[in-house]
Simulated assay, not measured.
Amino acid sequence: MQIQSYLFFNGRCEEAINFYRKALGAEVEMMMRNSDSPEPMPQLPPGMENKIMHASLRIGESTVMMTDGECKDDVKQSAFQGFSLSLDLPDAAAAHRQFDALAEGGQVVMPLEKTFWSPCFGMLKDRFGVSWMVGVHDMEAKG
């Protein structure tokens, strides 16, 4: 069994894909726009044809799936709450690179610092409101 994240970006999915490609070196494994659907989508509102129906990104050894979702007008920003994506890196230098890249346009919740469980750990919300925990789990790694 495997659990994977599926994120809804309310019309900003392509922007998020480009951001994660730059910030994390994510690779697009699959991307389908609404207009690529093999079946007609009669309920699709006008202007939604080029929005992302489904995308799958490879980030390191993990897969993160995403979509534009329903793109409701009353939702200005995705409201990601109650979870964080955790990014485990081999050393502090890598943690700082990825943390700084994800924090661009976002909000640092806890700066990267040494903790009792990690030589380097921090938390942030990226520009899309996705919460991230970035750290090094190996206490022997340089912090």
Results as ranks from 00 to 15, higher is better:
M133E: 06
G106W: 11
W117Y: 12
P38M: 12
M139S: 08
F128P: 03
F9N: 03
E113H: 09
C13L: 01
L7G: 04
S56T: 09
K72C: 03
G11I: 00
K76T: 08
R21K: 14
E39C: 06
C71S: 11
S78C: 03
Y6E: 01
A103R: 01
P42C: 07
F9M: 02
P46K: 12
Q2T: 11
M133D: 07
N18I: 00
M66G: 01
L24D: 10
C120W: 00
T63E: 10
L124D: 02
G106N: 07
G143F: 08
G143N: 01
Q2H: 14
Q4T: 15
K125Y: 03
A92N: 10
K114P: 05
Q2L: 13
V109M: 14
D68S: 01
F8H: 09
A95L: 09
S78G: 15
S118Y: 02
N50Y: 04
P40T: 14
S86V: 13
E104T: 09
Q4I: 15
E27Y: 02
V109R: 10
V64W: 13
A55S: 12
P40I: 12
G106Y: 07
E140A: 15
G105H: 01
G105D: 03
Q43E: 15
A103P: 01
S35W: 04
S5F: 13
M123G: 05
Q77Y: 08
T67Q: 04
S78F: 09
Q98F: 06
M66L: 15
V75G: 11
A93C: 11
W132N: 01
M123H: 07
L112T: 00
F121Q: 06
A79C: 08
M1E: 09
A79Q: 14
H96F: 00
M123E: 13
S35G: 01
A26N: 06
H137V: 11
A95G: 10
D68Q: 01
G135N: 04
I3P: 03
S86H: 11
L44R: 00
A26Y: 04
P90G: 11
H96E: 12
S56Q: 13
V75R: 12
D73E: 14
M32K: 05
D36K: 05
I3R: 08
D68R: 01
M41L: 15
E104K: 11
S56V: 10
S5Y: 08
V75E: 10
K51Q: 04
T67A: 11
L102W: 00
M133A: 08
P40V: 13
V108D: 06
P119R: 00
D74N: 11
V136E: 04
S62L: 02
A103Q: 02
E70F: 13
G106V: 10
G82D: 10
V28R: 01
S62T: 14
N50F: 06
P42A: 09
M65L: 14
M30I: 05
G135A: 00
G129S: 08
P45Q: 05
E113M: 08
N10K: 06
H54F: 13
A26Q: 06
E61I: 03
G122L: 07
P119D: 04
V28W: 02
S56M: 15
G143V: 02
W117C: 02
E15F: 06
F116L: 12
K51D: 08
R21L: 05
W132D: 05
T115P: 05
W132C: 09
N50H: 14
W117K: 05
